[in-house]
Amino acid sequence: MIEAVIFYMFAFVLMAAAAACVSVRQPVLAVLSLILCFFNAAGLMVLLGAEFLAFVVLIVYVGAVAVLFLFVVMMLDVRAPAAEPKKRQRFLRPAFAVVTAILFLEILVVVFSSLSASDVAPVIEADFENTRLLGQVLYTDYIYPFQMAGLLLLVGMIGAMALTLTKRKEVKRQKLWDQLDRRAGEVLEVRSVKTGEGLL
């Protein structure tokens, strides 16, 4: 009973936050409702017994990815866009519709295929931590896809670095070791100054 109540609570807030995310005018509020969305999705995963995945979603998506979204939206200071979209954006609408339709179909296929396959799903022993199980599956049965995903991320990382790594001449960089390497004798000179004469 209680589980059902909690499920509907999470599910309702999730749908409401998702709707708010795409309909709110202010970009910062949209990102915040996206975060609420992630949070409720994590809650649903806990209900399903996938607590490891739930917390990884919280740590990775909410704790890192969405923070960067929020960061960018705030830094750019994006104002709420005018009511009528520009010509180019109107042209893009069918493309968005197609992508959304494909994603939606994909979800439907996954949901229906898992509904029919649920009676043959492997039974997990109750005292088996699902963290351990996930690790074992990832590093044995799915080792190649797992490593491929890692490689993809590595490529993305190197790409991001290559894009931003430019040596600009006008920027003065702090040379830490040169500073620490300085001795007092090289830069300081002690003189005794006679009264009324000055240094020169």
């Binding site: 607590e51 490891f52 917390f55």
Partner: peptide, 20 residues
């Protein structure tokens, strides 16, 4: 809970939002 460490890590990553 079995994932106590992750729980702590998740909540501490949420606390960034309060400041932002």
């Amino acid at each position: 809970i079995n994932v106590g460490v992750l729980y702590i890590l998740a909540l501490s990553s949420l606390s960034v939002y309060a400041l932002i």
